[in-house]
Simulated assay, not measured.
Amino acid sequence: MKQKSIMLALAASLLLSGCNMASISNSLKSQHYMATGDYQQGVKTFAKSVRETPDNASGHYYLGRFLLAQHKYDQALPHLKTAARLNPDEDYYFWQGLAYGQLGDNANEKKSYILALKLDSDHSQSRLYLGHLKLKENQYKEALQLYDSVLKQYPSNPSALYNRGLTLQFLAKNVDEKNAWLKYLDLYPAGYLANRAADHLNSLGDFSYRNYYLGKRTVTLKEIRYSSRSSNQLSSTSYPSLKLIGAILVNRPEEILQVVVYENGNPSLARKRANSIKTHLLDRFSEIEEHQIQVSWFQGPEKLKIGKKTFKIQSSVRFFGTGKA
Score class of each variant (00 low, 15 high):
Thr167Cys: 10
Gly191Tyr: 08
Leu182Glu: 05
Arg196Lys: 15
Ala180Ser: 12
Gly191Lys: 00
Lys183Asp: 10
Asp186Glu: 00
Tyr188Ile: 07
Arg196Asn: 09
Val175Gly: 10
Ala172His: 09
Leu168Ala: 03
Leu166Asp: 08
Asp199Tyr: 08
Leu185Asn: 01
Gly191Cys: 08
Leu168Glu: 05
Ala180Gly: 03
Leu187Val: 00
Ala190Glu: 15
Asn179Lys: 14
Thr167Gly: 02
Ala190Arg: 13
Ala190His: 15
Ala197Asp: 08
Leu182Asp: 02
Leu187Ile: 00
Gln169Gly: 13
Asp176Asn: 12
Lys173Val: 06
Asp186Ala: 08
Asn179Thr: 12
Leu168Trp: 01
Ala172Phe: 04
Leu182Lys: 03
Phe170Gln: 13
Asn195His: 06
Trp181Met: 07
Thr167Lys: 04
Leu166Arg: 09
Asp199Lys: 10
Ala194Met: 08
Tyr184Ser: 02
Asp199Ala: 13
Gly191Gln: 05
Arg196His: 00
Glu177Met: 13
Ala198Cys: 12
Leu193Asp: 10
Leu187Gly: 08
Asn195Lys: 13
Asp176Phe: 07
Leu182Ser: 02
Asn174Lys: 15
Asn174Trp: 14
Trp181Asn: 05
Val175Ala: 12
Tyr192Asp: 14
Ala194Lys: 04
Tyr188Pro: 03
Leu193Lys: 11
Asp186Ile: 00
Asp176His: 10
Asn174Asp: 15
Ala190Ser: 12
Leu193Val: 11
Phe170Ile: 01
Asn195Arg: 09
Asn179Cys: 06
Ala180Tyr: 01
Leu185Lys: 02
Thr167Glu: 03
Leu166Cys: 09
Arg196Leu: 14
Lys173Trp: 08
Asp199Thr: 13
Leu166Gln: 09
Gly165Arg: 03
Ala197Cys: 13
Asn195Asp: 15
Leu193Asn: 14
Ala180His: 03
Ala194Gly: 08
Asn174Arg: 13
Leu182Pro: 02
Phe170Cys: 00
Asp176Pro: 04
Ala197Thr: 08
Ala194Thr: 03
Arg164His: 07
Thr167Asp: 02
Tyr192Trp: 14
Trp181Phe: 05
Leu171Val: 07
Gln169Val: 07
Arg164Lys: 14
Asn195Tyr: 10
